[in-house]
Write a protein that binds this DNA or RNA. Structure first.
Lengths: 126, 126
DNA sequence: CAGTATCCGCGGAGATACTG
DNA sequence: CAGTATCTCCGCGGATACTG
């Protein structure tokens, strides 16, 4: 939590926001998780495993992960071309923390859904 | 990582996606972090500390966190009214994992920015 | 003070067509 | 195969005005 002298949170430098800005998108974390499980994968393999990601978004996601040094892209100039993606050391260093969050989700997400259900029920009753 | 029999990730039940869907929004994590540091806060105190959140989004964020049982809302029917928010046990249980991610960010975000800078430079050169 | 109600703009994301 | 290039849509989130 980073505060200014006026007591306000300084959003720009706030580490939480930086992490969320980087990984809060729809696909980055999922791709990292996938590569952490499967090792080295081709573009089409990632697309097929995720299933409901568009070609465009997979390209955008992989390019941004590559640009940030979280994954490594290896291009083989064959015909037809082959491209393989794998996690970098930097990317791998994030995986345990993702798994922490994931296991928290597995443990508590049902309770959250139940809470939400009850809350909505209470609202509708007045 | 949850897969179907066809080898595809089952997005709907995937714990990672559930967590991201819940906490990937702009303000939830930030509010939880804030409450974990400050304990009990009034609506206006949260608004002023964050600084650049709109009244609407703070209302929406607090209401959704309350509905999911992550925070507790206490209303005092005074004039003018007073409302205090604090973390629930469920909300508190998430805090350590957020801090894990945050410290990872503090450790590696500069490297990521540097990687991105170099990547863009390389692209512009050809 | 702590919200609602309403309108609106922007950008993330999908669909489709095309290419080295 | 692994992408680009466009067009488009949707909904998150901001701005503003109002209220118990």
């Amino acid at each position: 939590m980073v505060k200014n002298s006026d007591g306000k949170i300084w959003i720009g430098d706030c580490p939480i926001r930086q992490v969320l800005d980087r990984f809060g998108d729809k696909w980055s974390i999922l791709v990292i998780e996938l590569l952490s499980h499967e090792g080295k994968l081709r573009f089409s393999e990632i697309a097929q495993t995720i299933g409901d990601i568009s070609q465009k978004m997979l390209t955008v996601t992989l390019r941004s992960l590559e640009s940030d040094g979280l994954i490594i892209r290896q291009f083989f100039p064959e015909i037809p071309p082959r491209v393989e993606y794998e996690l970098s050391d930097l990317g791998r260093s994030l995986v345990p923390h993702i798994q922490q969050l994931t296991s928290w989700g597995q443990e508590h997400m049902e309770a959250i859904k139940e809470n939400r259900r009850r809350f909505e029920e209470k609202q509708s009753k007045g």
